[in-house]
Simulated scan of single mutants.
Amino acid sequence: MRILLIEDDKSTSDYVAQGLTESGHVCDTLDDGQDGLFQATREKYDVIVVDRNLPGLDGLSLVKALRATGNRVPVLFLTAIGGVNDRVEGLEAGGDDYLVKPFSFAELLARVNALGRRPAISTEVTKLQVLDLELDLIQRVCRRGGKVLDLLPKEFALLEVLMRNKGRVVTRTMLLEQVWDFHFDPKTSVVETHISRLRAKIDKPFEVQLLQTVKNSGYSIHAPR
Score class of each variant (00 low, 15 high):
1 M>A: 12
4 L>K: 02
5 L>H: 09
8 D>S: 14
8 D>C: 13
12 T>W: 01
14 D>F: 08
17 A>K: 12
18 Q>E: 08
18 Q>W: 10
25 H>Q: 04
26 V>I: 07
28 D>G: 00
31 D>E: 01
31 D>R: 04
32 D>E: 13
34 Q>W: 00
34 Q>K: 14
35 D>A: 06
38 F>A: 10
40 A>N: 01
41 T>H: 08
43 E>C: 09
46 D>R: 08
46 D>M: 13
49 V>W: 00
49 V>I: 15
50 V>K: 01
53 N>K: 06
54 L>Y: 06
56 G>T: 00
59 G>K: 07
61 S>D: 13
64 K>M: 13
64 K>L: 05
68 A>H: 12
70 G>R: 05
71 N>M: 03
75 V>Y: 10
76 L>V: 13
77 F>V: 12
78 L>E: 03
78 L>Y: 11
79 T>Y: 03
79 T>D: 14
83 G>Q: 15
84 V>N: 04
87 R>M: 13
87 R>T: 02
89 E>Q: 15
89 E>H: 07
92 E>A: 14
92 E>P: 00
93 A>R: 04
96 D>G: 14
96 D>Q: 12
98 Y>T: 02
98 Y>L: 08
99 L>D: 01
101 K>S: 09
110 A>N: 07
112 V>R: 02
113 N>M: 02
113 N>E: 05
117 R>P: 01
119 P>L: 10
119 P>T: 14
121 I>L: 11
122 S>H: 12
122 S>F: 00
122 S>P: 00
125 V>H: 05
126 T>H: 14
130 V>C: 15
131 L>I: 00
132 D>T: 08
133 L>N: 08
136 D>G: 03
137 L>S: 14
137 L>H: 04
138 I>Q: 15
140 R>D: 03
140 R>G: 03
140 R>Q: 15
141 V>N: 11
144 R>V: 06
144 R>K: 04
144 R>M: 07
145 G>T: 04
146 G>M: 10
146 G>L: 12
147 K>I: 05
148 V>R: 15
150 D>V: 08
151 L>W: 08
152 L>I: 02
155 E>T: 02
157 A>G: 04
159 L>A: 09
166 K>G: 12
168 R>V: 05
170 V>T: 15
172 R>F: 09
173 T>A: 08
176 L>K: 10
176 L>D: 03
176 L>F: 13
177 E>R: 05
180 W>F: 15
181 D>Q: 14
187 K>D: 10
188 T>M: 11
189 S>E: 11
190 V>S: 07
191 V>S: 06
193 T>D: 15
193 T>K: 12
194 H>R: 13
195 I>S: 03
200 A>I: 05
201 K>T: 03
204 K>E: 09
207 E>V: 12
211 L>A: 06
214 V>K: 13
214 V>I: 15
216 N>R: 13
216 N>T: 00
218 G>D: 10
218 G>N: 06
219 Y>M: 06
221 I>S: 11
222 H>M: 06
224 P>M: 08
225 R>C: 07
